[in-house]
Design a protein around this nucleic acid. Structure first.
Length: 177
DNA sequence: ATTTACCGTGCTT
DNA sequence: AAGCACGGTAAAT
């Protein structure tokens, strides 16, 4: 899977960018798939356009379901085990820290989970656990960048941007207890 | 059981 | 420019 990276903050990303999007079926709910000219830049679960707009301020949003169908179908077909084979590049816009965290997520194998602490250590900032939590939560390409595979060390709490139920459903689909 | 300290980011003062 | 709340965690009260 090809990964294209851009350094940007949440407030600057989307400038001079045209994004086409469409909403499609997926096993755990609807997904909103959004593409730039470069590739897949956003994947939201049960997500509406307002949310997309919030995260891509300044971008021109164009609904075009036909344009996103191919991507959506491929994602549904490859999930849960083979998303790394995705033929469409994923496009990440984030701060240097966020990009590090998100790339680290891509190394987690389907069916396994890691803790926030583990990621923090991997990127060389063992004390930035909490910051890692923020970064994981701001991932723009859920499912493909597997933010749902990051769990609390003492799994008594489950947090997830798209709702705890979705996180559980995703992990269940990937055969995690 | 509660508090405290640490990290980076975006929102509110 | 400064303060604050987070998708965390361990250690000291």
């Amino acid at each position: 899977m090809k990964v294209i990276q851009h350094t940007a903050s949440r407030t600057t990303r989307g400038k001079n960018l045209t994004i086409v999007y469409g909403i499609h079926d997926f096993p755990v709910g609807n997904i909103l798939v959004a593409l730039t000219a470069e590739g897949l830049c956003w994947l939201g679960i049960n997500c509406d356009v307002a949310k997309l707009h919030e995260n891509w301020k300044g971008a021109e949003l164009v609904e075009d379901k036909a344009a996103t169908t191919k991507a959506a179908r491929e994602i549904a077909k490859l999930w849960p085990d083979s998303l790394h084979k995705l033929s469409i590049p994923i496009v990440l816009y984030g701060t240097a820290f966020q990009l590090k965290v998100w790339k680290e997520l891509l190394h987690i194998k389907s069916g396994s989970t890691v803790t926030y602490e583990h990621i923090a250590r991997k990127i060389g900032k063992p004390k930035a656990v909490r910051a890692v939590g923020s970064a994981v939560g701001r991932n723009t390409v859920s499912i493909v960048v597997p933010c749902h595979r990051v769990v609390n060390k003492s799994s008594d709490r489950i947090n997830y941007g798209w709702g705890p139920a979705i996180k559980k459903a995703l992990l269940k689909g990937e055969k995690v207890a």
